[in-house]
Amino acid sequence: MLIWLTEYLIQSFSIFKFFYCLTFRAGMSCLTAIFLSLWTGPYLIIWLKKLHIEQSVRTDGPESHIRKHGTPTMGGLMILFSIVTSVLMWSYLFNPYIWFTLFVLISYGTIGFIDDYCKVAYKSSKGLTAFWKYFWQSLIALAVILIIFKIEKNTPSPTQLVIPFFNEVKPQLGVWYVPLAYFVIVGTSNAVNLTDGLDGLAIVPVVCVAFGLALIAWVTGNIGFANYLHIPYTQFAGELAVVCAAIIGSGIGFLWFNTYPAQIFMGDVGSLSIGGMLGIIAVLLHQELLLFIMGGVFVIETLSVILQVSIFKLRGHRFFLMSPIHHHYELKGCPEPRIMVRFWIISLMLVLVGLVSMRMR
């Protein structure tokens, strides 16, 4: 939005040309999102408390979570507001990728909002039924994927898959692009949702992954760097760095209030939306497998749930004391802050591994 205003200012003041600089706009997007989160956070917490929009704790969860009962939820509204505002302010709005990411963010945020509302209204931790949650997630993801496929079908690499550590191997997936992209968007959304079980546990890995994707978006949108790293050059990809920067800024601002002991929880309105947004960004960058590496914490959390359910159905006993896996460590006596920080460290390491894999040949 500000770029349009700058076009008129440049005619009289050439100094405003720096507004065209992608790194400048990404940095300002991050700072704007941080400011908006820190500014709106206290007001949102007070407002949610007045409306009694509070967290419903699982009755079968760890006893230490009883103290979390009554903590305001739906803090993801703060995240969505700061991301959308920052992106609209600092991105080039003629770029279609911007609207794909915002559409997924807002639509998945709407699903999460309904889910959170059901939990609050019925004083339950279950919320929206799994069928309807996955139905709407699937419908939205497939609609976006098919539109992207139609737009990019005439480009050199519409269904190209980049394999980390083997960047010169880029198979064309053809029709298999659709189920892979669907799995990435819907899977990442729900994986972030599963990870969001401890104070600050999900938001820092989200920030780390967004930082990694921001760097990938920057090089993917630069034909020189893209050729050097043997990754597909994508014309519109560079602008996604501004989107990722907004995610980083909003995450940092939200962590201010969500760090242990949390003053507010993001709720499904936050976790489903930012998870889906990370997924669509990875799809647009053709870095689905790289997201699998950098978002390894989300993968581990999801696999722990799948393993727990599968073994219980097959053998009638639990593999973990409780799933997702962070609850397992809680029940083993590991303090919540220790689990949280160690998961952060693992997430940072995995993002670095993912970035290093981009230069391996």
Results as ranks from 00 to 15, higher is better:
Phe100Val: 02
Val204Asp: 02
Gly249Arg: 00
Val120Arg: 04
Ile45Phe: 08
Pro324Val: 05
Leu146Cys: 11
Pro335Cys: 12
Gly200Thr: 10
Val219His: 05
Met266Asn: 06
Leu48Gln: 12
Thr188Trp: 10
Val84Leu: 15
Trp99Phe: 01
Gln172Tyr: 14
Ala130Asn: 09
Val309His: 04
Tyr117Ile: 08
Tyr228Leu: 12
Gly76Lys: 06
Ala181Asp: 04
Ile145Trp: 04
Thr195Ser: 07
Phe103Cys: 13
Gly127Met: 00
Pro335Arg: 09
Leu5Gly: 12
Thr23Phe: 12
Asn193Ser: 04
Phe166His: 08
Ser86Lys: 06
Cys334Asn: 13
Glu301Phe: 07
Ile45Trp: 06
His230Ile: 14
Leu314Pro: 11
Met340Asp: 00
Val186Asn: 10
Tyr228Gln: 10
Gly251Cys: 09
Lys332Asp: 12
Asn95Ile: 05
Ser37Pro: 09
Gly316His: 09
Ala141Asn: 00
Ile66Thr: 12
Ser138His: 02
Leu198Arg: 02
Ile280Trp: 06
Ala237Phe: 05
Leu272Lys: 05
Leu355Tyr: 02
Met358Arg: 10
His52Ile: 07
Gln137Met: 01
Phe292Ile: 15
Gly333Cys: 12
Leu80Pro: 15
Val162Ile: 15
Leu173Trp: 10
Gly112Ser: 03
Leu38Tyr: 08
Met266Ile: 09
Ala26Trp: 03
Pro164Asn: 05
Thr259Pro: 02
Val192Leu: 07
Ser124Pro: 04
Ser347Val: 04
Met360Asn: 07
Ile339Asp: 01
Ser37Trp: 03
Ser86Thr: 10
Ile280Lys: 08
Ile311Cys: 05
Gly197Gln: 00
Phe312Ile: 10
Gly70Pro: 13
Ser310Glu: 08
Thr159His: 10
Asn190Ile: 14
Ser125Tyr: 04
Leu142Gly: 05
Ala181Ile: 01
Tyr228Ser: 06
Gly212Ser: 10
Glu330Asp: 06
Glu152Cys: 07
Ala214Phe: 10
Trp47Val: 12
Glu301Val: 07
Thr101Phe: 01
Gly279Thr: 10
Lys153Asp: 09
Ala226His: 00
Leu93Asn: 10
Ser64His: 12
Gly316Phe: 11
Met89Lys: 11
Gly249Asn: 06
Tyr177Ala: 02
Phe13Asn: 15
Ile264Ser: 09
Leu102Thr: 03
Met74Asn: 04
Tyr108Gly: 07
Val57Glu: 00
Tyr329Ala: 01
Lys68Leu: 07
Met277Arg: 05
Leu2Met: 11
Gly187Gln: 08
Phe131Ser: 14
Phe183Cys: 03
Val283Asp: 08
Phe225Pro: 00
Asp196Thr: 01
Phe319Asn: 11
Ala241Tyr: 14
Gly212Thr: 12
Thr59Ser: 14
Ile311Arg: 03
Met89Trp: 11
Leu289Glu: 03
Phe320His: 08
Tyr92Ile: 14
Val175Glu: 03
Ile79Lys: 05
Val87Ile: 14
Ile46Gln: 12
Val309Phe: 02
Leu51Gln: 11
Gly112Trp: 07
Ser86Arg: 06
Cys244Tyr: 01
Ser37Asp: 02
Val351Arg: 00
Pro205Asp: 01
Arg361Cys: 01
Leu240Arg: 13
Gly295Trp: 15
Tyr43Leu: 12
Ile46Gly: 13
Ile293Leu: 15
Ile247His: 01
Ile147Thr: 15
Ile111Met: 06
Gln137His: 06
